[in-house]
Design a protein around this nucleic acid. Structure first.
Lengths: 124, 124
DNA sequence: TTAAACCATGACATCAATGTCATAGTCAAG
DNA sequence: CTTGACTATGACATTGATGTCATGGTTTAA
């Protein structure tokens, strides 16, 4: 199958498919005319790539274990666990930071609303 | 005071002070030699800018209300509240997304650990 | 056969604040 | 007067996946 068909089947843009290839995540054959030729397995492979990307992993991280997880159960691939754990710490840190900001924002919003109400009361 | 001194007093790099100026957040006078001349008020102003930047607001958003909040109470500046509320929604969305990923990651990590333990037991 | 649709590659843009470097003018202390 | 510290401006880099455009070759359907 050619790149346009794979793009349509997976919902991933042609641009991204070429990018994944350059990052070492896909390795389609080439037809005589230079067109990329994807096997039927490529569709599942792209969905796997998308899954890990959506998990927040980088193409570089994914490249480190993609071949393994395509052939085995995830638990068999040694590289996966440390990457997951590292990502989890990162996510926890981000959530903590966002929560601090969130609390700060909520405080300021309610304080603004309160002061405005007091201003109204003074007028009354 | 010159830019180096302001940078040292506020902990903000010279580069960033020039950037803030270009974004319309600072407007120092110029000495005859072209050097920027900051008033003592600039120090507080920079801290205010940093505060809003740390809250996740963009220089463009900050520029929209900075002059007002420097002169009045925050609750007096009409532009602030909608920006806060918009930012809060954004943060909530980010937290939600991160939490989904977090749950996903934790599930996969524990599932890997569990499968590895089962593998061990089988050997025993 | 010809036009439309598809493919290839490479380059530039994005988002945003900041770092860094190059080049050059200015100032202060020795 | 000279050297080192400071300042000015402008340009390029960063981060990462993706969009978009330009240019040109290929295929396919009418």
């Amino acid at each position: 199958m050619k790149i346009g068909e794979l793009a349509e089947r997976t919902g991933v843009s042609v641009r991204s498919l070429r990018y994944y290839e350059r990052q070492g995540l896909l390795a389609p054959l080439r037809q005589d005319n230079g067109y990329r030729e994807y096997s039927v397995l490529a569709e599942e492979q792209v969905r796997t790539i998308r899954f890990y990307l959506d998990l927040g992993l980088s193409t570089e991280q994914i490249a480190g274990f993609l071949q393994c997880v395509l052939r085995n159960k995830e638990s068999f691939c040694e590289e996966v666990l440390p990457i997951y754990q590292h990502k989890l710490k990162e996510i926890d840190g981000q959530i903590r930071l966002l929560n601090q900001i969130r609390v700060n924002l909520r405080d300021r919003i309610s304080s603004i609303l309160q002061e405005r109400n007091q201003g109204q009361e003074e007028i009354i």
